[in-house]
Design a protein around this nucleic acid. Sequence first.
DNA 1: ATTTAGCACTCTATGAGTGAGAGTGCTAAA
DNA 2: TTTAGCACTCTCACTCATAGAGTGCTAAAT
Lengths: 347, 347
Amino acid sequence: MDELTERQKLILTLVVRDYIEIAQPVGSNRLIERYKLEMSSATIRNEMAVLTEAGYLRQPHTSAGRVPTEEGYRYFVTHFVYQTDLPDATRHTITHQFYQARQDVEQWMHLAASILAHQSRAASLITAPHADLARYKHLELISTQGRQVLMVLVLVGGEVSQQILTLAEPVSQEQLGNVANRLNQVCQGRTTDEMASLSLGAEAVEKDILVLVMQDMSRGEQRLSGEIYLDGLSNVLSEPEFIESDDARRAIRLFEERSLLHNLLARTMVNSHVGGVQVLIGGEGEWEELRQCSVVLARYGIPGTATGALGVFGPMRMSYARTIPTVRFMADLLSGLVSETMVGDET
Amino acid sequence: MDELTERQKLILTLVVRDYIEIAQPVGSNRLIERYKLEMSSATIRNEMAVLTEAGYLRQPHTSAGRVPTEEGYRYFVTHFVYQTDLPDATRHTITHQFYQARQDVEQWMHLAASILAHQSRAASLITAPHADLARYKHLELISTQGRQVLMVLVLVGGEVSQQILTLAEPVSQEQLGNVANRLNQVCQGRTTDEMASLSLGAEAVEKDILVLVMQDMSRGEQRLSGEIYLDGLSNVLSEPEFIESDDARRAIRLFEERSLLHNLLARTMVNSHVGGVQVLIGGEGEWEELRQCSVVLARYGIPGTATGALGVFGPMRMSYARTIPTVRFMADLLSGLVSETMVGDET
DNA sequence: ATTTAGCACTCTATGAGTGAGAGTGCTAAA
DNA sequence: TTTAGCACTCTCACTCATAGAGTGCTAAAT
């Protein structure tokens, strides 16, 4: 496809904007009336014919207006809204909300999901920041009952995982404390690989625990991240193209089927640098489940320390002009929070 | 309302069963054909008229079959399915699945939500077991960067909460360790009330931390429970009465609005003893958001130590015969797990 | 005293037919 | 190159008629 004329670009953007707003095919007359254009409807029709030929627009049927194709949305996104920034006022409001909730990573996640959903009027998803390579920081063993022990493992970066272990035989709290202390001294800051080559005292319990710790660490590395925080699903469901349609259910299922979501987020983690916003329109052929939907995704955090992904999910008709800047801003904001609280670790 | 005759009961159950299955008004002829009844359609019609008069059935319009009213469902539930048990095979399958995932409370929750959703073919919700009165068990302080400290607080019962603190001035890891050790000795097994009257060493940091710990504990007591695990929403959305209807969105919103869910679960926590299954049909007048829906709820756990709530949410037309026994069984199962791993705590 | 057959009646769902309206593409003039 | 004019197409909303399902009532049968 070669370049479009200025007028064609104008008409394309107007069609996309209008369709995003009203969810109905856009006709030539409608366009003139709404935007007070200085040309006749016939001219618009000619240009629309060109844009249709070029694959940016589509006619549901002969006597209907035009609807953007996936390529149309794509053109719109890359040429017109990608560089847009969020209004200062909005930025400040959001920043302020985060300032009030700086205690707790889990709270950030909920807040971020909520803000994303509200700003974009669509569904949002976000994973907690997660280290690519787990490094041991601190272990705590707490006996609960008989052979059962609660293990609390803290990783460099602040992730905490807890697990209930069942040992081969009962061990006293004192002994557990000793084991934890020794491991804490030896393993400080190490990765699983480094820990595998350590030589330890001959005590059986100690070795068992170490193995369990390493298992836990590598399990954590493999999964992209545990919880995925969601919000705003009902926004998506009330969009007209989802009412009565089967796609709604497919979309919801996508959100429940963690593995699909993980794939989706993993794609972002691989393809993109931190701060870059990816826009996936209508599944792009790859994702059958996303046929009518678009996803705006970004990675956040500090590569090498802890990163996560966040994004917005909605109908292909979503307001990219609002969503893309919001996603970018939230990614930056969270990157900042991660670096504030999680970096630096020379005890 | 006085007692129904046996035949009336029979017809009522058949109407409810059939309507639950096919989601369409049930007529007299249909009933005879499907269930090979030894009477004429006229007899059925007479009985139906009685049941309608008594408020158990309803006619959408003059020439339609009958549909159960809320009272009809209620009668059906209390008289016919309430005492039903889950088939042995199913019980074993479920128990087995839990046996494989006994490491981790979070995994239980996911598993329980998934099983509930699958068995009932509706949406499920469950909260983690939670102590009514928080008792201190163990504190760990880990310095991360500058004045920031990761606090990991373990409560009797196994709950773990983590939080990032910002201290007034930097404190070394060694010093933090000492503070934690002292508090661990003094506070062992105590409630916030008991901790409030403790006299401590004069060290400022120690007092500050203690206050933060107590804040965290009482915050935990207040909220019913942090996370609510959900699953199976798409099951509900594909039910015919939710297609195209506004109620679907209202239901989804209910699930997103945590406070509503909390209220719902709180109701169960207050009204019911552990193991008792509560059935809320069509909102019962109280819950506007649940107009077309029913909720089956139960409390599980060990009162005084840790309890939680679990339940199933679906259309009023849900299969109570499957759902109620499942909810009861899951509540018992989880109670067992709670007592196995969380009770007993004389370190 | 019940139960049932028969029948008139009511209401919905379905499909055909129709006209209005929106929007197009094409042609020819500006 | 743009625009006015116009014939054409397709959808949508509306009406109307009909088939069918299901009822309630009455009178006969058990």
